Amino acid sequence: MNVIIANKYRDALANLDIEVIKKLEGEFTVDEIIETFKNFFFQKMILDITALKDYKNIKTLQQLSLSLDMDRLILLLDGSPETSDPEYLSDLISMRIYNFTMNVEGVKWLYEHPNSYRDVAQYHQLDTTHETNYINSATPQSQVYPEIKQTTVICFKDITPGAGATTLTYIAKKQLARNYDVVAIEVDKHDFMYFDEDKMYSVSSNELGNTISKYNSAEVVLIDGNTSPVTEALANETIYLLEPSKIQLNKLLARDPKVLENNKNKKVVLNQCMLSNQDISDFEYETGLSVFATIPPLNDQSSDNEALDRFLVKLGFYKQTPLEQGGNKKGLMGLFK
């Protein structure tokens, strides 16, 4: 039996198809959580990090790790700059918190396929050092941990069949390569072979984690996720592509009537989209989805698509535009400046 501690993401976690023996909602101090569960048997604890008071202070998580079994913890992060910081993630790993994710799909995956250190080693700091003072440390000196490679992993997945994840991954890879060191990976298919482009690889779901680790010297890893269930848990950000044509939407709803509801809290992008701003507003109202961005049909022979650059800038890749147009802003995961 499992326990869920939820706050900001309570609605999303309520849809998890697992047996729950105890559920807490709201904000709690780390002492309250420890006191409640230190003698309470459970299989897994799913913790919405926003339910933990002072969670942006890594020592709060450390205190939790000293009192509860971290092998049983699945941590749902909020994607804030603090909890997305490489040093914060590395410290989680140092505390043996290996099962963390930024979306509910990742929670589902980690519940059935818990991480080992090998799965998260790419996020553990390996180069330079920083200091962290540990509560109840055996010595007064700070523990030292190496610096994480600043690799951002972004996954594209189709909601409507053929929404263009493979081609978008290819074009985005070419375009980002003007300013970043980029690797592209497709999962469980071999379509990349037809693009005749370097640094594009085809792997199975089982090989994905090791492949990301292999190329952790790259600044950006783009993933064409296809139908693989593992990609969301391994990516910093997953972009869900939807082609907003009437026939595609009707086919999608006929196959899965709950598909729109299941994607309400995700980053939805309308790909190959020619809708006006008013049409997009109507689409959001009718579907209940929040559209993160729209991308028009792109020329896959070009590496200079202005519309795609606007989308990439919105993701945080500000080198795609001149500095005065946004280069001083903070990007995705706080890694790109």
Rank of each mutant, 00 (worst) to 15 (best):
A235F: 00
M193N: 12
S202H: 03
I97C: 07
I34K: 09
I148A: 13
P86W: 08
S217Q: 13
T321G: 01
K173Q: 12
N250H: 13
I295R: 00
L270E: 03
F292Q: 01
L312V: 02
S281Y: 07
D300V: 10
L47T: 06
T139W: 02
T139N: 11
D85C: 06
S137E: 11
L315H: 01
K337T: 12
S90N: 10
S116I: 08
I46T: 04
A235I: 00
D127Y: 14
L289K: 03
K108I: 07
Y123F: 13
G316K: 05
L52I: 10
F40N: 07
L242A: 01
K44A: 07
H130W: 11
E324S: 12
E105F: 08
D224P: 05
L168W: 04
E131A: 11
E27I: 14
W109V: 06
L47I: 04
E105Q: 13
S281K: 14
P257W: 06
D191Q: 10
S245Y: 05
K23I: 07
V187H: 05
M1Q: 15
I212H: 04
N136F: 11
V203C: 03
A138Y: 13
Y201H: 11
S202M: 06
D127Q: 12
N236K: 09
N2V: 01
I49W: 04
L75Q: 05
V20F: 08
F192T: 01
L61R: 05
A14R: 12
A233G: 03
P146L: 11
E131I: 09
N136M: 09
E27K: 15
N15S: 15
N262R: 15
Y215R: 04
T60Y: 01
N305L: 07
K38C: 08
L52H: 07
N15F: 12
I171H: 02
Y318K: 03
D256I: 02
K337H: 14
L68W: 04
I58M: 07
E25Q: 09
N271D: 09
Q320W: 00
V144I: 15
T211G: 02
F28P: 04
R255A: 15
V220T: 01
Y180Q: 02
D181S: 14
Y201R: 08
L234Q: 10
Q143K: 12
K314W: 02
D181W: 07
M45Y: 01
T321R: 15
T166Y: 04
A233F: 02
L242T: 00
A165F: 05
N7W: 02
L308H: 02
Q43K: 15
E112T: 13
L61H: 09
Q125W: 10
V104Y: 00
M45H: 04
Q43E: 15
M274S: 15
V107L: 03
P244Y: 06
A121W: 06
I135E: 06
K22G: 04
E219H: 05
I21V: 14
T36K: 14
I295Q: 01
Y194D: 12
